[in-house]
């Protein structure tokens, strides 16, 4: 589903990604962990080209998006993204947030719109908030709306950029539950996270990134319990 080949990314002289090669299968849930500044978020943002790709290939469902001639907007319709700071549209109601892109991009028509929107809201447990505005929601509710908004385009892949890092601890659970449900439905997911519990329980594979490279990749038990890398060990010992 996702194939990354020798991906490099530089900001000016600062090389943030130093040649990443990996593959992610359909329906797989990959959690990306690592110290801050290791390039996790940049890696994720290269997967839908929110960051321009300096060199290498990123092949999403057969399309190499590093190629400038590819219409990235079409590819992005299949790749949902959830941000650390939610980025809901504050001037639109919850329902409008969710249905804006499908309506403007002609993915949903007329009466089906609201029905589809309600289905998604039910899925994230917020069917009573359809007409609310983002400013009246809690962080956890905002993030669940953001997930519903991304799902409204019927994506094949979902990218999560530290989805729970900006939340109060007691609100994290609801968001993780929605993500778990999504994983169980077979969504292909790439999750940059500090939630090691989630990575262990839900992740099919864990990538440990450090200094612009994937230092180690394996099943959660391989990475968390049986790692042979000194760098991984020292990172895990600090946070667990």
């Amino acid at each position: 589903m996702i194939k990354v080949n020798d991906l490099h990314k530089s900001f000016g002289d600062n090389e943030v990604l130093k040649g990443i090669t990996t593959e992610i299968d359909a329906q797989e849930v990959v959690c990306v962990i690592g110290p801050s500044g290791s390039g996790k978020s940049t890696f994720l943002r290269c997967l839908n080209r929110l960051e321009d790709i300096t060199a290498g290939e990123v092949i999403i469902d057969g399309t190499n998006i590093a190629n400038r001639e590819v219409n990235i907007n079409i590819v992005r319709q299949d790749v949902g993204m959830v941000f650390q700071h939610f980025n809901l549209f504050p001037h639109k109601s919850v329902m409008e947030n969710i249905m804006l892109a499908p309506t403007k991009l002609k993915k949903a028509k007329g009466e089906n719109q609201n029905q589809r929107g309600m289905e998604l809201l039910k899925k994230v447990g917020l069917e009573d908030k359809a007409s609310a505005y983002p400013s009246s929601l809690s962080g956890g509710q905002k993030q669940r709306v953001a997930i519903a908004r991304a799902l409204a385009m019927n994506p094949k892949i979902m990218l999560f950029d530290e989805p729970t890092s900006a939340l109060d601890p007691e609100l994290v659970g609801d968001v993780l539950q929605v993500m778990k449900d999504l994983a169980n439905e077979g969504m292909t997911m790439v999750v940059v996270t500090h939630e090691m519990g989630f990575a262990k329980e839900v992740g099919d594979r864990v990538f440990f990134m450090d200094e612009g490279l994937i230092l180690e990749e394996g099943t959660p038990s391989e990475v968390f319990d049986h790692t042979s890398h000194e760098r991984t060990q020292s990172f895990l010992s600090k946070i667990l």
Partner: peptide
Amino acid sequence: GQMEAGRSLGLNGRQTMRY
């Protein structure tokens, strides 16, 4: 983040600006 959210949904730059 507003521009990024719009673009990540598949809206082009002009659509994100407008809506």
